[in-house]
Each structure stands twice: as structure tokens, then as C-alpha cells.
């Protein structure tokens, strides 16, 4: 029997993160991110899930005084995302992000999706048109908005706005997409849409998703990491984590005994 090894897309090595003010929010995190797989981060509120996620696209650089230690290495080129000489903008060109609350820009639907391309200096209208359409189709929102591409994005419903934000993130062909509780502000139907969308996106890119919803993690992810107080307690195949966790803490959290 041949074992197929899934290639690594990225991994964190001994990652520490210290917030301005000295709070050590991440402690020695090692975690792989397999290519074209969905990895879910679970854990109680305040354990550092968002902090960890936001290290990948260097969002913490926006606020002064934050400090990273350790590495996040991207494959196959072995770039250390946190390296001193690495431009965070370069990193964000490869790793895009979808936030907890939909945050469209005060622009039309079209311009929201075109934003990443424009920022990258794309001027050709034909190319932008094509990319916008492709991204909106990829985010399963094209049929709903194709007749009003030039309406303000704020006029969409919350679930549509979130799919628009996914389209926006998709339009630039990222290698990795980060999701921070992408459905926590949405109703069950919109949530189901986004979940389905994420499983479809798995064919194209690598996904890291933070979620508070155990069922969601179990439904959509291939791998699950359980974090607690800034540490990675357990990592493994989602099936195994949910059926046969090795650590007592993980089991307690999953079964709802605490958290």
C-alpha cells in the first residue's frame, strides 16, 4: 500500500507572541498547515486563537510594540513570514484574511472585489472584470449580485457581505486564507452557505479557520488544533480529535464540560 503524504504549506516553529505591554499570548507554538486542507483552531475564549491566526499575515504589525519570536515558515520556498527582512505587504499578498464581522469597504460590490487587484497595480479593465466575476462566482455570490455590481456593498445582507469579503480575499489568488470566526455573526442558513463554500475552496487553497462552534470544526476541517492559555494542547486529524482525544483537557472542552 502506498501512503500519500500531504505536502506542508506552512508551519509555525516555537512561535511566541508578546503583546505591547508584556502579555505573552502565545507560548512555543508548533503547528503544521497542510496544503489544500482545512485546519481548525478551537479553544476557550481568550486562549490566543485570533492572536495566532493574525501572526500569519502579520496583522500585529499594525499596532506598535508587539513582538514575535520564532518562525512561521511558508513552503515550498521556505520563507519565514516573521523574518526581519520580510515585507509584511509581501506576506499579505500571499495570505489573505476574512474577519469575524463582515467589513466591506465603503465602495461598490465590484470595487470591493477589485480592491486587492488595484492595490497590486492592476489597471487592465478586462483582467479586473474577469477576476471580479471569477472571485464572485468562487464565493457563491455571483448570481445574487451580478445585476447590481455597482451598488454600494453595505446594501447587502450580513451573509452576502461575508461572502463578498471572501470574494475580495479570493480575487488575488492567495495561497493561504485565514478565517477568524467567519460565521459567528451570521444566521444558520448563511453559516451553512459559508461552510459549504469553505469546503469548496479547499480544492484551491489552504485554510486556517478559528471557530467556537465544535460542530463546525468537526464538519469542515481536516485537522484540528486545540489551544488553551496560549499553548497548543493537542493537534491531529479532526476525526481522531473528536472521537479519541489523547488529552483530558481536549476531551473536556469538546464534550462541553468547560469552555
Amino acid at each position: 500500500m502506498v501512503t500519500v503524504t500531504t505536502p506542508l504549506k506552512a508551519e509555525s516553529r516555537d512561535l511566541n507572541f508578546i503583546y505591547n505591554g508584556g502579555h505573552r499570548a502565545l507560548k512555543g507554538i508548533n503547528m503544521p498547515l497542510y496544503e489544500k486542507k482545512i485546519t481548525a483552531l478551537i479553544g476557550p475564549s481568550g486562549c490566543g486563537k485570533s492572536t495566532f491566526l493574525r501572526c500569519f499575515n502579520r496583522m500585529h504589525d499594525l499596532y506598535p510594540g508587539n513582538k514575535y519570536e520564532g518562525q512561521i515558515v511558508m513552503h515550498p520556498d521556505n520563507t519565514n513570514v516573521l523574518g526581519a527582512g520580510v515585507d509584511p505587504i509581501e506576506v499579505r499578498m500571499r495570505i489573505s484574511m476574512v474577519f469575524q464581522k463582515p467589513n466591506p469597504f465603503p465602495k461598490s460590490i465590484y470595487e470591493n472585489v477589485a480592491y486587492g487587484l488595484r492595490v497590486r497595480g492592476e489597471r487592465n479593465k478586462r483582467i479586473i472584470d474577469d477576476k471580479v466575476e471569477e472571485a464572485l462566482k468562487g464565493a457563491a455570490i455571483w448570481d445574487e449580485v451580478k445585476d447590481r455590481l455597482h451598488d454600494l456593498a453595505f446594501n447587502l445582507s450580513g451573509g452576502q457581505q461575508q461572502r463578498l469579503c471572501i470574494a475580495r480575499a479570493l480575487a488575488t489568488d492567495p495561497e493561504i486564507m485565514l478565517f477568524d470566526e467567519p460565521t459567528s455573526a451570521l444566521d444558520p442558513i448563511a453559516t451553512a452557505n459559508i461552510e459549504e463554500l469553505m469546503t469548496e475552496l479547499r480544492d484551491r487553497l489552504t485554510i486556517l479557520v478559528v471557530t467556537h462552534n465544535m460542530q463546525q470544526a468537526a464538519r469542515i476541517s481536516d485537522y484540528t488544533a486545540y489551544m488553551y492559555l496560549g499553548e497548543m494542547m493537542e493537534y491531529g486529524d479532526t476525526d481522531r480529535i473528536f472521537t479519541n482525544p489523547t488529552r483530558k483537557e481536549t476531551e473536556d472542552y469538546i464534550t462541553g464540560k468547560f469552555g
Binding site: R92, F99, N103, Y115, V119, T172
Partner: peptide, 8 residues
């Protein structure tokens, strides 16, 4: 943050 995350 949405804008920076797009590489702006």
C-alpha cells in the same frame, strides 16, 4: 484592517 489584510 480589511484594507491592510489585502496587502494595501
Amino acid at each position: 484592517e480589511g484594507s491592510y489584510a489585502m496587502g494595501a
